[in-house]
Design a protein around this nucleic acid. Structure first.
Lengths: 149, 149
DNA sequence: CAAAAATAGGTGTAGCTACACTATAATGTA
DNA sequence: TACATTATAGTGTAGCTACACCTATTTTTG
């Protein structure tokens, strides 16, 4: 019924969090229902499927705190989708996908694709492309800033 | 040093979550350091400062699950920044800001403004405005869809 | 009016997120 | 070579998020 008070708060962080909450629920309702995993886990599997990396490197790649990755990995290791392999440096733990993980990712792909397509139909392909462009630009600026301390 | 593997995952949900994580850390490092509260809490205070609402209504306004609001409110009620008032309907709980909450919000405002300005300087005012436009369009489409079931 | 349906909100459980701090191993330097 | 520094990863704590399920009150309806 669209009765919005429109307390438009011009905080970029809040606006981003609000949209992200909404979009995450949208994907998870579709992904979890059909494939039994959250979008966060699907994203992690998709990354590791393409390339095995040590923890810190993977965390940086995904724009998350190193310790967050440790926690997110736990249920996926318990599920047998991910394993930690030793690197040349005995301190290093290489995050790798298992055969079971590969299968789960493959099985979830149609549900992810459907969610993505449904979102694009809802917002318009143009708008989604524009959003992606904005996001990539923001991430590029921020990582450059953060990497250079 | 910008050595990016660029595993560009074209998942809108992942991209949004990645940027939101990064931006949230950016704000929280500035807000928490100077004002002792997280951006989530600052946003909540800012909303309730403008308008007291029953729980479900406020949750919808902020694009969050009703039960999430319950949990987020707890530490703020314990801190004495927020109180729940009885509505005409005895089931209803009106979320209201206290004098202490008003003061905390006021004290945090400069740190928030500085973070927001710093982000705009980093990304460019144009880019931030564009991002906000994209976010609002997406939220409008999604809430229309979700409200109409 | 009594039973059914709808509305408002909380709890159990579980995963996501990050800071401060810790442990261990590799590297650099006196 | 011994010691300090750096690099890699984990833990304690605490807040954010949401689904499934529950309670209580109001409204609807037979």
């Amino acid at each position: 019924m669209m009765l919005q008070t429109s307390l438009a708060i011009p905080c970029t962080c809040f606006q981003l969090r609000k949209l992200t909450r909404t979009v995450t629920r949208f994907y998870d309702q579709r992904l979890l229902a059909q494939a039994g995993l959250k979008n966060t886990q699907f994203s992690l599997l998709s990354h590791v499927l393409q390339l095995s990396l040590p923890m810190a490197r993977l965390a940086a790649e995904m724009g998350m705190e190193r310790t967050t990755l440790t926690r997110n990995l736990r249920p996926m290791i318990e599920a047998g989708w991910i394993e930690l392999q030793a690197g040349g440096d005995p301190r290093q733990r290489i995050v790798a996908i298992t055969a079971a993980g590969r299968e789960v990712q493959r099985a979830a792909r149609p549900a992810w694709r459907a969610a993505q397509k449904e979102l694009e139909a809802l917002l318009g392909a143009q708008a989604v492309a524009g959003l992606h462009g904005n996001i990539e630009h923001a991430l590029a600026c921020l990582t450059e800033f953060l990497d250079g301390n």
